[in-house]
Every structure is written in structure tokens, then in C-alpha cells.
Design a binder for these strands. Structure first.
Lengths: 239, 239
DNA sequence: AGCTAAATTGCGGGAACCCGCAACAGGTTT
DNA sequence: AAACCTGTTGCGGGTTCCCGCAATTTAGCT
């Protein structure tokens, strides 16, 4: 079985190569590339039933790479690993993972034991496995900040891109007032409080989302790339 | 000579220990801790003339750790190393480095050669050394986006914290209109354009600053911690 | 001291934002 | 069928933001 490793940090890459060598005798050949673009290129061949993807990389990040890989080969099993337990990543992954495939998400700080377990479970057995450290964010109803719905999240992204209410309404195909309602519930869930005119709710919400790792810069970069074409088309349409 | 290494990634830490062992025979003893808080604690003893600090760490980050270390022992030589060439880090460092000391800033992706050079130059010779990849950001007048002044930057931080114009004016001790002038020049330098009502300049500016790495989340976390006490005092005052 | 460029502040108004109130639709429960 | 919960939309007005205009202060230079 051939395995593709996409990882820009050479120390982490060599550690991963070594670990896989020890734990997965099924793997006959390991290819290692150092960024998302090369990873997509390499995976295009369809020779890799299993891929390990770093999430934060210069250029195209892991989620974007996964999207194009899965678009061409939906059965590919992908193990993501990352420095951070950002909810934004998990959200990005779960919305693009195909039914037919398997994925995993482990932190780089996990023990070698748990990493080995994930390697086997996801890449060999085709299970879905998410590090409990990450999952913690996803479903703790105990905290005041509850999870966002899908539509709330997309409005949050647009907000963080710096769009006006009107343009968000346009993009997400809803009325202006609905957008503002979404924002209202966002403010509540992010615990954004006016405090008597001390805070600008709009930017404060972005701040809270970033600090709670509900949103991250990589996601914004990717979102910006998606916004570009849409906006250009809109301009052409309105002329 | 005793050396303190503060680094949360174990692979990077062991690589650094190894490299130092090879390149700096002057170092007789290496202590390694895994986060900023422990680093400050360890450095309090004053036994370390030289420190190597990772910048992004869970909990207290490298810039904050450096501040407390330098506050107690201003002659300490500190080499920062980081995954990212964020202008925000460099700005944070240059504003706190004491006259009597030396510092360096290298990327984790630099060659072992250059890293060795920096180790010797900064920790042994007491020079100041900044990776050219980072310095690039600092002083390229050629790009449309020119560098921010100190006061523009502080307004940018407050903006990203989600404060209103009024509160920024209060905090930075200037008039409301001045704050707005600062914002105006910020918008220009960050190339924030209204585009006929499509963008909210406020959030768009934060977005641009984050994507160009002029600002980063770690800086925001630190800024939030500074804001807290001031705001509490203000509330008490106004009562 | 005197002159000029740059920065600071006040004023005013148009636009966007924030949100309470209220009407309405679709789906679920009783 | 009636009550109910959730999500969408319009309207109105109070607030903040954005910025042109103009007067004033500060900083830098001769």
C-alpha cells in the first residue's frame, strides 16, 4: 500500500515517516511532499489509498488540499494532523468529507500511542476518529458558548471577511434583516456584549471567534479565495 | 555558560539542543522547559545569560515571556525563533528590548548554517540579528503597503480588540476625530477599499492586517490581557 | 523668531449598523 | 384543528461610523 505524507515541517515529517514505518507494515512505499499544492498534484494519480495531511502549511492548506483530493478520489482515507485544536478546521473537514471515505484528526501533541492507534484505525480500517481534545470544542453544551449552526458559521466567515450586511444577504441569498438576526444570535453565542457603547459588536465578534479558535486565519485565507470569483461575477452581473 | 531553551514542540526542542551542542561549545549546561510561564520562572534565578525562546506557545507566548525576563535581567541575550515571519512579533520585540541587551529573530525554516550563525552572533557575541525573511516585511517601501507608525499600530490593535472609536480615543488619550484620522490612514495603508458599500472598512481592516501577518492572534491575546485591567479601572473611575 | 508642513481637533451629514416590534410561513406537538 | 416553536421579512429610529471641510496646534527648518 502506498502512502502520501504532506507536511511542511521537516522534523514532523521525518518523525511521521519513522512512526509509520514502525506501526504500519502494510505500507510499502511512502512519498513525502512539503506543501498542499504538491500534495494535490501527487494524489491526482490516484495511487494513494491513504494520505496524511498537515493542516497549516504555506500556500494551500490541508482542508483545501483534501477537498481537491476527495473530489477526484472520494474513497481516499485522510488523516489530518495539526498543531491546533481549531474548531474551524474540524468544521471545514466535516463539511467536505464524502460518505464513502474515512478521516481522522489528531493533534501533533498526542502521544505516539494514540497517533499509532489513529493511523491504524483511519488508514487501514477506514474508521472515523477525532482526537478527544478537539471534539471537546465541538460538543460541550455545558459551556455558555454553544456551537454554531452551519448558517451562523457562514455568516461569521463573511463577517470576518469584512462584508457589509447587504452583501452578506446577497451572497447567502437572504434578506437584510435575516442576516442581522443571524448576527444577533452570533453575538449571543460568542458572548459579545456592548457594555454600554464600549465595544463595536462587529469587530468584537471577530475577535472572540478568533480567540476561541472557532475561526482561524487559514480559514479566512481560504474563504477569501472563494469570495473572489463570486464577487467578480456579481460585479459583472450588476453592470 | 548556562543556556535556557523554551520550546513547546519536542521535536524542535531536541533539534535545538543537538544543534547548540554541536555549534556552541561554550555552553556547559542546557535547560529545557516547554512553555512561557515555566521559562519565566526558570529565568528568574538570573543564572542564564542566554535564552532561546519559541514565539508561539500555549499559555504565555514568547514576547510576553521576554518582557518579564528582560524586566528582571535586562542584559539577557535572547534568540527568538518562530514558524512565522509575523510583523506583529517583530514589532512586539523591538518595543521591549532593552538598550543593554541583544536579541535575534530567526525562522524555524532557516538552514542550519544560518541558525548556527545566529546562535553565535546573538548569544555569544551580543549582536542583533534578524532573519532577512522577516526584515523584508519591516522595511520595504516599494510595496504599496508601507509600514505603520507606532501609534497607527496601537490603534489597529484596539480596533481588532473590538473597541469603539470613543473608547480608543479614551485609552490612547486623543480626540475622537484623531482616532478616526488614524483609522483613515490605516485603511489606506492596508489597502482597504469600500468598493461602493460592499465592505465594512472596520472589519475589513482587521482581516487585511491578519492576512498580511501584520497582526496575529497571539498578539491579540496578549493585548486583551493588557486591556482588561485598564478597562476595569476606567469603569471604577467613571462611577 | 518666523515660516511651512504635518498633525490634531470640532462640526455636520449621509450611510451602515443594531435591534425592538410585529406579521407571516412551515413544521411539530397536543 | 389549535397551539407552538423556529426562522424569515419589513419598518422605524437611535447609535456609531466614515469623512469632507475648516480652524487650530505642533514640529521641524532656516
Amino acid at each position: 500500500m502506498k502512502l502520501l505524507i504532506v507536511e511542511d515541517d521537516q522534523f514532523h515529517a521525518s518523525f511521521m515517516v519513522e512512526t509509520v514505518g514502525e506501526i504500519l507494515p502494510e505500507v510499502s512505499e511512502i512519498t513525502h511532499v512539503a506543501n498542499g499544492g504538491e500534495g494535490e498534484e501527487e494524489a491526482k494519480s490516484g495511487e494513494y489509498p491513504a494520505v496524511i495531511l498537515d493542516l497549516q502549511m504555506p500556500g494551500r492548506n490541508g482542508v483545501e488540499a483534501a477537498r481537491t483530493i476527495w473530489a477526484a478520489h472520494p474513497e481516499t482515507r485522510i488523516l489530518f494532523w495539526s498543531n491546533y485544536a481549531d474548531e474551524a478546521y474540524l468544521r471545514g473537514i466535516t463539511t467536505i468529507v464524502p460518505e464513502t471515505s474515512a478521516y481522522g484528526y489528531v493533534l501533533k501533541t498526542t502521544s505516539t500511542n494514540r497517533l499509532g492507534l489513529a493511523l491504524r484505525a483511519v488508514l487501514i480500517e477506514g474508521q472515523i476518529m477525532v482526537d478527544r481534545e478537539i471534539n471537546r470544542y465541538h460538543q460541550r453544551a455545558t459551556t455558555p458558548r454553544s456551537t454554531l449552526t452551519e448558517s451562523e458559521f457562514s455568516v461569521l466567515v463573511d463577517l470576518a471577511l469584512g462584508l457589509t450586511d447587504k452583501l452578506i444577504a446577497d451572497r447567502r441569498a437572504m434578506s437584510l434583516r435575516s442576516v442581522q438576526n443571524r448576527l444577533l444570535s452570533l453575538y449571543q453565542k460568542l458572548e459579545v456584549d456592548d457594555e454600554g457603547g464600549a465595544f463595536n459588536k462587529r469587530t468584537r465578534a471577530v475577535n472572540r471567534a478568533l480567540l476561541t479558535r472557532m475561526l482561524n486565519v487559514e480559514t479566512l485565507i481560504a474563504a477569501e479565495r472563494e469570495l473572489g470569483p463570486w464577487y467578480a461575477k456579481k460585479l459583472a452581473r450588476s453592470k
